[in-house]
Structure formats: structure tokens, C-alpha cells
Simulated scan of single mutants.
Amino acid sequence: MPAPASAPRRGRPPAFDRDEVLAAATRLFWQHGYEATSVTDLTSAMGIRPGSLYAAFGDKESLFEEVVRRYGRSPVGAFVTVALEEEPTAHDAFARILREAAAVYADPSHPAGCLMISAATNVTPQDAGIQDRLRELRNGNLRTFEERLRRARQDGELPPEADPKALAGYFGTVLQGMSQQARDGATTADLTRIAELALRAWP
């Protein structure tokens, strides 16, 4: 008995795999930054025509925003959030964050450092919104750090005189520095030594 005919598909089938082209765009933005990555660079790396890029993503800025959202959900972008959620103490969470950053930032399977720290350098005034967006994401991480450290102080894990805001800023600064060190060639071993030294500042 012949198989029943399948219902016709509506609309045009996708001409490319969205995850694959986003992965290519992510690597390019991560390696070169937003400003230095042109639409021509993107379409070449993604293997699509400019018209397909604009039809699928809107424009370069919208594509970058999707890249950032995708990065934030990936293992290399979400390890900070995961550590804060999974570790029972603030100390364990920040120790895990710093140690995992040493491994993630220097991992040769992708560009060095953190995309959200390095992608918005040297942005021109007309693209300042990108810089502002990434700054707000980074500042959001600092606020999350501070909230976790305030709870740690309330729970007695930190002494009463500890300054959660300053401590959050300290760990944020260390992470940003580790990202840049990785881009300058630091290895996981190099960054791990920095992470362990930074942890000695825990009150």
C-alpha cells in the first residue's frame, strides 16, 4: 500500500542552519570585537549572502545582540550564573567562578577571554549603544555578585565589617583582568595562579 502523500510545506525552507551561522558570527565578534567585524566579514564566515543576513537577523547590531544572548546561555558564557546557583556557599561559588574562568578564558577551542568583556572595545560613537548594552550586562553581574555577598554577610559567612560592594567589584575586576591576560596569551595555569591569589582576599 503506498504511503500517504505528505502535506506540502508552507513558506520557504531555511537556506542555512541558524545555530551554525550564529556560531560563526560569535567566533568572529569574539575574536575581533564588534567594531572591527564588518558585514562582509560576517557573511563570508557565515557562508551566507548579505541579503540573507538582513532577512534573518535584521542588521549587524541585531545579529550581535542575538550572539550575546546565545553566548550567555552557552557553557562558556553561563558558568558564572551556574556557579552562583549551584554552590552552597558564597566562597565556594566565587572560588569555582575564578577557577572555571581560568580554564574557559584560555581554552584554545574558542577565542580567548570573555566575549562580553572584549567585544565592545574601540566602538565608534554611532555604535555606542552596543558598548552601553555590554556595560549594563557586566554591571548586572556585579550587582548579582554584591547581592550574593550581602546574603553571605547576613548568614555569617562574611564578617560584619566586610564590604559586599567592594568585594564584588574586586572579583569583577579580577575576572576582567583574567580575560585580557588570556587574550594576551596567558595559559590556564597562569590564570589559575591568579585565581588562587585573588581568593586570598576573601575576608
Rank of each mutant, 00 (worst) to 15 (best):
Ile130Val: 15
Ser38Arg: 06
Ser109Leu: 11
Asp41Pro: 09
Ala120Phe: 06
Val104Ser: 01
Glu66Met: 09
Ala106His: 03
Glu35Ala: 15
Thr121Cys: 09
Val76Asp: 10
Val80Met: 15
Arg49Val: 12
Gly47Val: 05
Arg70Lys: 15
Val67Arg: 02
Arg69Leu: 13
Ala120Ser: 13
Val39Cys: 06
Ala102His: 08
Thr121Tyr: 06
Val82Lys: 12
Thr124Met: 13
Val123Asp: 15
Val68Glu: 03
Ala95Pro: 00
Glu85Ser: 10
Arg99Ser: 01
Val80Lys: 03
Asp41Phe: 11
Ala36Val: 08
Ala45Asp: 08
Gln126Trp: 15
Thr124Cys: 10
Leu115Val: 08
Arg99Lys: 03
Asp59Leu: 04
Ala95His: 00
Thr121Leu: 13
Phe79Met: 09
Gly51Leu: 00
Pro75Asp: 04
Thr43Leu: 03
Val82Leu: 14
Ala106Asp: 00
Glu65Pro: 01
Glu35Ile: 02
Ala93Cys: 03
Arg96Ala: 13
Arg96Gln: 10
Gly113Thr: 03
Ser38Met: 08
Gly72His: 08
Lys60Glu: 01
Gly72Gln: 15
Ala90Pro: 01
Pro111Cys: 03
Arg96Gly: 06
Ala45Phe: 04
Asn122Leu: 11
Asp92Cys: 02
Val104Cys: 05
Gly129Cys: 03
Arg69Glu: 09
Phe79Ile: 11
Tyr105Gln: 09
Ser52Trp: 10
Met46Leu: 06
Pro50Asp: 08
Ser44Arg: 15
Pro88Gln: 07
Ala103Leu: 11
Thr81His: 15
Asp92Pro: 01
Glu87His: 09
Gly129Glu: 05
Ala90Ile: 01
Thr43Asn: 10
Thr124Tyr: 13
Pro75Tyr: 07
Ala56Tyr: 02
Tyr71Gly: 03
Val39Gly: 05
Ala102Val: 07
Pro50Trp: 13
Ala120Gln: 04
Ser109Gln: 14
Ala95Phe: 05
Asp92Arg: 12
Ala128Thr: 13
His110Pro: 01
Met46Asp: 01
Ala101Cys: 11
Val67Met: 02
Thr37Gly: 11
Ala83Pro: 07
Ala112Ile: 01
Pro88Phe: 02
Ser38Tyr: 05
Gly77Asp: 12
Ser74Cys: 10
Gly47Ile: 06
Phe79Gly: 00
Pro108Gln: 03
Leu115Tyr: 04
Glu85Asn: 13
Ser62Glu: 15
Asp92Lys: 08
Gly72Pro: 04
Glu61Met: 12
Phe64Trp: 07
Tyr71Pro: 04
Arg96Ser: 14
Thr43Phe: 05
Val82His: 15
Val82Tyr: 02
Ala78Ile: 02
Val82Pro: 04
Asp59Glu: 07
Thr37Ser: 15
Phe64Ser: 03
Ala119Gly: 11
Ala120Met: 12
Phe57Ser: 10
Glu61Trp: 09
Val68Pro: 01
Ala128Asn: 11
Ser38Asn: 09
